[in-house]
Design a protein around this nucleic acid. Structure first.
Length: 474
RNA sequence: GGCCCGUUGGUGAAGCGGUUCAACACACAUGCCUUUCACGCAUGCAUUCACGAGUUCAAAUCUCGUACGGGUCACCA
């Protein structure tokens, strides 16, 4: 049987890295086994629907290299791929289930349910629908429907026994049937619930591997009961550990850039993000950490997904992304850095050549595009401030002389080039009789306010003669 | 509250009965390289795997209990 996986998001507009990771894992599972990867939009909750969300999902996946073999924009023979366009299908199957006695009509009002829930709450026990409408006769049901009463269709659960299934990640999962609620399959607005649509579609679309967040670990037995009722073959389940923020709490906008598009706009590279996200809760057999998508396809094994939650660690993301930054060609590098520079600083008096030079010398120093802004502020600020470490260093008595000679030599440069600046530094070395750290550091600190930075001659060159002289005299 | 899942160094994480099993990476420290910084390279960094008991000749690895953390109990997915 051909392996088929699906990424089945709700179009709520926001795609955080946890969702993206699910998509990546689904993609990797399919491609590793030479199968298909498809997109299905689960828009059964009309109240949460966001316009343009589908395009957003497409854009994100395209940027990341996750190509769909089938989906709303490139349908295969299993469409439609948007659940709101499949309503008739769900209804048909729901009715079939009622026919078989595995589901029933329920006319209970919101008020009655709330009352029941409150009671359960007071007794501090879990609320379970009491099966009130299960006893309704055919005649009673017909009358109620004729009277226009709103209804839902609920799945009939066994009241005793246990259900067990095997998960690729979590192993054998067993739950008692008595805790399974007669869950709603079809809502009163005619839309199916996730619980129902998901099963119907996965079967109809011949999905073989279902990868999803582990919040479904406990409800999977209910889905299996549905498969059994229809006599369908159950898929292989791969429940994914949750992605947590650095503070150990659920990922949110607060504890980091949780949205892929935010990362992308900050100048992170999709290859880097995909590489990092794959390592969230999964590890290869070797100790390598840098992988292209193609390499990942070859080695991805869902059995190696970990059970414990994965921590989304921006530091590690930065480290991986910096690998990809170093390999970037100049045009690409410019495209992810210059827009941020322009936003932060006034570049109107800078030449393209100057900007290119600036970005180039920082290529090995930044881990994502936007970081260029904070590391280059010494080129744009009027005043530079030395930290304690710098001030401590500058206390050495020999420094005044070194800087004085340097200033004289700089003033005498007529042709402002990196090469000539380099020559000046060598001249200072001779005349002041200092070398190494005592030669470079005073100059670096005086003109940049920092002990770290890119090549000194380049820094001096880009600062310009006027600024350098000005800072030397402060 | 019931049920399910997790807990390895400063951090992220491998390992899932023995054979270097406490990998690897980040961070940190030191050294080399570069006339400086950074990059790169090299070395160091958990007598110990939440805690307690048990099984075993042998446990981070299996079992039970405790603690802590998370998930789930919707006409949301």
């Amino acid at each position: 049987m051909r392996v088929r996986t699906r990424y089945a998001p709700s179009p709520t507009g926001y795609m955080h890295v946890g969702n993206l990771r699910s998509a990546i894992f689904e993609y990797l599972i399919a491609k590793n086994l030479g199968g298909d990867f498809l997109l299905r939009i689960e828009d059964t909750d009309q109240t949460r629907r966001v316009e343009g969300a589908v395009e957003f999902i497409y854009d994100t996946c395209k940027l990341c290299g996750l190509d769909f073999d089938e989906g709303p924009n490139n349908p295969g023979k299993y469409g439609p791929y948007i659940q709101s366009e499949r309503l008739d299908i769900y209804k048909e199957y729901a009715l079939q289930l009622v026919e078989m006695g595995k589901a029933y009509y329920c006319f209970c009002s919101e008020e009655r349910l709330d009352e029941l829930r409150k009671e359960a709450d007071e007794k501090r026990i879990a609320f379970l629908y009491d099966g009130h409408c299960k006893k309704l006769t055919k005649e009673e049901i017909d009358t109620k429907i004729k009277n226009g009463e709103r209804y839902v269709i609920r799945q009939k659960m066994p009241k005793e026994g246990i259900s067990t299934y095997d998960d690729v990640v979590y192993g054998e999962i067993t739950v008692e049937n008595r805790i399974l609620e007669d869950q709603i399959l079809l809502k009163s607005d005619g839309f199916p619930t996730y619980n129902f649509a998901n099963v119907i579609d996965d079967h109809l679309m011949e999905i073989t591997h279902v990868a999803r967040g582990n919040e479904y670990l406990m409800s999977t037995p209910k889905y299996n009961l549905l498969y059994d009722a229809f006599g369908w073959e159950k898929p292989t389940y791969v429940h994914l550990p949750m992605v947590l923020g650095g503070d150990g709490l659920k990922l949110s906008k607060r504890n980091g850039d949780a949205s892929f598009m935010d990362l992308y706009h900050d100048g992170y590279l999709p290859e880097g993000v995909v590489n990092y996200l794959t390592l969230l809760g999964w590890s290869p057999e070797t100790t390598d950490e840098i992988f292209t998508l193609d390499e990942l396809i070859k080695i991805f094994n869902p059995k190696r997904i970990s059970k414990s939650p994965a921590i989304y660690d921006v530091k590690k993301l930065n480290w991986i992304n910096s690998h990809y930054m170093k390999k970037l060609d100049i045009d690409k590098l410019l495209s992810i850095t210059v827009p941020h520079l322009k936003e932060a600083y006034d570049l109107s008096d800078k030449s393209d050549e100057w900007i290119k030079h600036l970005v180039t010398i920082y290529q090995n120093h930044i881990s994502y595009g936007k970081e260029i802004v904070e590391v280059t502020d010494l080129f744009f600020k009027e005043d530079i401030k030395m930290n304690d470490e710098c001030q401590e260093f500058m206390k050495d008595p020999s420094i005044a002389n070194t800087l004085k000679i340097f200033e004289e030599e700089i003033m005498n440069i007529s042709d402002w080039t990196v090469e000539n600046i380099n020559t000046v530094i060598n001249t200072v070395k001779e005349k002041a009789d200092v070398k190494g750290k005592m030669l470079y550091m005073p100059i670096r600190i005086k003109i940049s306010g920092q002990m770290h930075g890119p090549e000194l001659p380049d820094t001096i060159y880009l600062l310009g003669k006027d600024v350098v002289l000005k800072r030397l005299n402060k």
